[in-house]
């Protein structure tokens, strides 16, 4: 059984503000979904055998770096709060 307190805890972990009046609805919905997905417990089999995936060594060679600052301007233009070349956030200490 999921409680409203559980929902609050999960919302805290996920950094989402959930309006008080939505918490009970959300609790009911999440509980119903968990009830449904919980049916996979019926499938036999303890742990999956690890198979070797097709993808190997997908890391590129550490070479041909792009020019310093090449993308800076465009990326910084999307930042909601900035100061010069910096992303600005509120004090965390």
């Amino acid at each position: 059984m999921l409680t409203v307190k559980d929902i609050e805890k999960l919302a805290e972990l996920a950094r989402i503000d959930i309006p008080t009046e939505e918490k009970e609805t959300l609790r009911k919905e999440v509980e119903a979904i968990l009830g449904y997905v919980g049916e996979i417990q019926k499938v036999a089999g303890e742990s999956a055998e690890k198979e070797i995936p097709n993808h190997r060594n997908v890391f590129r060679e550490d070479s041909n770096p792009h020019l310093s600052g090449e993308f800076t301007k465009e990326l910084l233009e999307e930042v909601p709060r900035r100061q010069d070349e910096y992303v600005k956030v509120k004090k965390i200490l």
């Binding site: 559980d6 999960l10 919302a11 999440v30 919980g38 996979i40």
Partner: peptide, 25 residues
């Protein structure tokens, strides 16, 4: 919220790990 729940320490094995097992089946 649902994803945070199925990945949380107490439920990880029952949901996420089990789902990975079924996925491989």
């Amino acid at each position: 919220i649902l994803g945070t729940h199925v990945l949380s320490a107490g439920y990880y094995d029952a949901y996420y790990n089990k789902a990975n097992t079924v996925r491989s089946l």
